[in-house]
Design a protein around this nucleic acid. Sequence first.
RNA 1: GCGGAUGUGGUGAAAUUGGUAGACACGCCAGACUUAGGAUCUGGUGCCGAGAGGUGUGCGGGUUCGAGUCCCUCCAUCCGCACCA
Length: 1018
Amino acid sequence: MDYNFKAIEEKWRAFWASNQTYRVTEEQGKKKFYMLDMFPYPSGAGLHVGHPLGYIASDVYARYKRLQGYNVLHPMGYDSFGLPAEQYAIQTGQHPEKTTKENIARYREQLDKIGFSFDWEREVRTSSPEYYKWTQWIFNELFDSWYNNTTDKAESISSLIAIFEQEGNGGVNAVTDQSGIFTAADWNAYSELKKEEILQNYRLTYLADSWVNWCPALGTVLANDEVINGVSERGGHPVEQKLMRQWSMRIKAYAERLLTGLEGLDWTDSIKDMQRNWIGKSKGASVRFAVGSGSEPGKPNGAEIEVFTTRPDTIFGVSFLVLAPEHPLTDEITTPEFAAAVAEYKRAASLKSERDRQSDVKNITGQKTGAKAIHPFTGEEVDIWIADYVLATYGTGAVMAVPCGDQRDWDFATHFNLEIRNIFLNKDISEGAYTEKDAVITNSDFLNGLEAKEAIEKAIEAIEQKGIGKGKTNYRLRDAVFSRQRYWGEPFPVYYKNGIPKTIAVEHLPVVLPEVEKYLPTEDGQPPLGNATVWAWDTINNKVVENSKIDHQAIFPLELNTMPGWAGSSWYFIRYTDPKNEQEFASKANIDYWKNVDLYIGGSEHATGHLLYSRFWTKFLFDRGYIPFEEPFQRMINQGMILGRSSFVRRITPTLFYVDVNPHDGSETMITDLQANMTLNSEFKNSLPQVFVSYPYYQAYEKDPHAFNDELFNSGKERIINGILDKIARPNVRVAIELGDSMPIHVDISLTDNDKLDIEGFKKWRPEYTDAVFILEKDGTYICGHEVEKMSKSKFNVQTPDELVEKFGADTLRCYEMFLGPIEQAKPWDTKGINGVSNFLRKLWRLFNIDENGVAQLSTEEPAKENLKTLHKTIKRLGDDLERYSFNTCVSNFMICVNELTEQKCTNRHILEQLVILVSPYAPHIAEELWERLGNTPGTVSKAQLPVFNEHYLVEDNFAYPVSFNGKMRYKVELPLTLTPKEVEEAVLSAPEAGKYLEGKIPKKVIVVPGKIVNVVL
RNA sequence: GCGGAUGUGGUGAAAUUGGUAGACACGCCAGACUUAGGAUCUGGUGCCGAGAGGUGUGCGGGUUCGAGUCCCUCCAUCCGCACCA
C-alpha cells in the first residue's frame, strides 16, 4: 500500500483538532518547558516558505520535549497592530480591523496545513481590547513608578511623593530629568500643575518635549530602532529631528541592568553585542566650564557649560568648546557680534534631516559664538563654538575639544585654523590626532609623566576636589519615544485635566479605540484620533463620551496619540500563560508555573527593538513584584532568512549592420556609419524579433561576443532574419546581424524546473514575447540564469508553503526546511532537493510492509543486533544534535537510519515502533498513521515516550584502525579493541601493506590513539 | 572606521573535545526494470592523471606525530553600528 500523504495529513489534522491533542494546562508537579516563537505581524501577502522555518524548528523541539515528559507551553498569536493595515485602510477606507481579521484567517489557514502543535486556545492578538486592556494597565503601572537608584529598582510613585512631602527631593537618588532642588515646604506649596510637572521628571513613562525622529511622509514620530540610515525602516522615507511633546519611556533607568543581564543569557554573541553597542556604556567625567564675563579675562559671568568626556586626562589639551546647535545655552552666551551668524547656523542645522547630517560627515561646519569659557585648571579663556558634529542627544550636548587626542576635534581645529595643543610626549600630531591611550602626558601640570589609565583617575580626582564635576558613566541608550500619531495602535488610558495627564484606573479599562471617519491626521495636524467625535472621558460615569460634552469639570479630552508597535509585543509571552484572564494580566499561579521562556526562536532583526524593550518591561514588572523573573527569554536561536532563487531569461537585442561586398574578390567590410545603421535598425525595428539566449550560451557570449555571434548565432540567424535581409539586400551591399545589449528579465519560478524554462508557459505569461526567438541548448531546452535574492513578489521568486504541501505533503515540507542547512544560517530556497526528502518518507513507509489491507506485516521476534545498533546510534545522535539545534543533521540521521534498516531488511516491530516515535517531531502526520497501523489505537504518538539510548548496543569488539604515515592515511587494519597500544603498533607495522610505505626505514615514532588512529612517523 | 559572523565538491551541506575531509541529500554519468512515474533498483561521481600516484577545506605563515578545527597576517562576502566626545 502506497504512502498517500494527502489522505493521511487530512485525517490527522482533523484528529488533532477534534481531540484537542495539543491543549496544555498547568499541571503542578510536572516539569514545564516554555517554547516560544516570535509571533508574526499578519501581513496581506501571507506566508512564504521563509516564515515557517522558525516555527517548524520550534515545533520539532516542542514535540521532542513532550516526548521527554515535559509539560510544554507552545503558543502562537498575532502582533496585529501596525502600519501596513493602517495604510491599507487609508487607501481603501476599509477598517484596519477588518483587513487584520482577514489576514489572520489566511495566516491561520496556512499555518494549520503545516501540522503545528500550537495550543490555539491560548492565541493572543495585540489588537484585541481584551489584550490591550492589559497593555494599558502596564502603561499605568509605569506611569505610577519611579526609579530608585539606592534600591536599584522601580518603586511606586506614591513613595516618592511621601518623601517629597517629608523632606523634598534633596536626598532622593533617582533616575530623573529633574535638576532643581526643592524642600518639603516648597513641595507642599506647589500647585497641582507644578507638582505634576516635577513628577513627570521621575515617572518611568512621562510627557516631555524631546528631540524626536519625525517622519513627515508617515506623519508620525519614530523610535531610534525604527530609523535606519536616516530613513524610516518602513517605507524608507526621510526622517528629521523635531522638538515635540511626546510620551517617553525611561528605559535609561535600566541601562546598566540591561547590560549586565546579558551575561546570564544563552543568546548569540552577535545579538548581545548589538545590544551592548546600542546601550553604549562609556566611562569618563562630566566637567563644568564657567563662561567668561567678556569684560575681564578669567572672570565668570555665572553661566556654566557641562561637558562629558571619556578622556579627562586630556583636559590640558582643550583649546575650545563645542556645543550642539540645539544646546539650550547657545542664545544666552552668544555675543551680540555673532548673534546673527549663530542664529543662521542654528536655522540651517535645524533644516537638515538626520540623513543629510549623516552624509555630510566630511563637510565640516561650525560657528563661533564669541563667548569664552574659562579653563578650570589654567584659568585661560577658550572660544566656544557651535557645530553639528556635536549631538544634542548624547551626553550633555557639549564637548571639550582636544584636537591632539580626538580626530573630529583635530579635523575641526584644522578646518577653522584653531589652536592644537600637543600634550603627548614625543607624538607627532601634524597629520592627525593621536588617539591611542599609551602616550605619556606632558604640558599638563599635575598629570605630566602619566599614561592615560593613571591620568584619568588622577584627573577625575582633581575635578571632584575642585567641585567642578565628577566621574560619570554615560549611556548612548536614549529614552524611547512612546507615542505615535497613528490610528491602528493601543489608545493611551490617559485624559487631560487642565493640561495635567491623568490615567484611567484599571477597573475602567480597556479604553477602546474609537471609530473615526478617516484614518489620516486632522486638518489642523492632530493625530488620526483627532477625527473621533466620541473621545472624551467622563470621570463620573467612567466611560468614553462625545467630545461635545467636554466641560473641563468632569468630562475631559482623551489622549490623541496611540502606542507604538512594540508596546503589545513587549509582554505577550506573559499573556500566553493565562490568555483569557479578565481580572489580571495573568494570574500569579500561572506565571509562577510557566515562568519565562525557555527557548525563543525568531529573527535577529529585533535585536535592538523588541528584544530590548521586552527585557525592559520584564525587569520593570519584576521590580514591581508582578513576575518572579528578570529576563523574558533565557535561550534564543535566530533563524536565518530564507532567500529566494530568482530565475532570469536573457534578452538580447539584435542589431543590423550594412556590409559592403567587394564585387571583385567577395571580401566584406562592415559599414561603420552609425547614422546609416541606426536608420536601418529603426526601419526594421518591428520586424526584428526579441532574442532569448539560453544561459550557458549567454555566458559564452559574455566571454567573447564575436565568437558567439559567428559560431552560435548563425544557427538561429535565419529565424531572426525573417526575410528582412532579402528585402533590403542590394547588389554589393549585404546586411549583417549582431547581438547587442543584453538584459536579464525575471521569470516566474513556477515556469522553471531545474532551471529549464517552460517556453510555452513563458509566452503565455508574457504575450509580448510570443514571436521571440529562443536560442536553445543542444537538447532543445532553454536554461535560465539564476540569482539569490530576497523573496518578493516583484522578483517572481516567492515560494508559498501551500504549493509545496499540496505537491509533497506537510511532513516533507517540514523535514525539507529542517534539512536545508543550519537553522541560524541564511540560505537560498531551492526546491530541487525536496525530492530527496520526499523519497526518504516513502522509504520509511515502505519499511513497515503495509499490505493491501493496510496492515503492517512485521516480525515480533527479538530484534537483530545490527537493527538495535542502527536504532540506538540514531537515538544517540538525534539527542546530541537536537541539543545543539542541529536540525539538519537530525534529518540526515533519519535518512541514514532508514537506509540502513532497509539494507538490513529489518521488519522488526520493536525497532520500527521506536523509530516512529523518534520521527514524530519532524514528520508528525506519517508518524501518527504508522503508530496507528502498529495497533496503537486509539491514541496519538505525541503522548508516547522517547526511546532511551542504551550504550550497550553500540559496543564493538573490533575497530578498523586507519593507519597514517606522516599524517597521510594509507590503509586500515581491523583489530580487536582489547589490544594494548604496543600490540596495535606491532599488528599495524606487520600488515602486508606496511612494507610499501616503510620503504625499509625504521619508524622514528608511532602514535597509537586507542580506538581512533595510528600515525607512523618516518 | 568599529563590532559580529561566514569562507569546504557542480549545489545545499557534514565532520561536537585537534585524529579516516566531503556523511546525508540534490545534480550529473553509466546501467537495470517497468503498467512511462517527478517511480524503483545497481554502480560511479572533490580536482589533476590512462595508471601508479599526486593534490585538496579563501591566501600566506606558524604550533603539532597529526590542523577544516588552535595561533598570527592578509583577502573576500554578509549582518549590525557609525561624528556617541
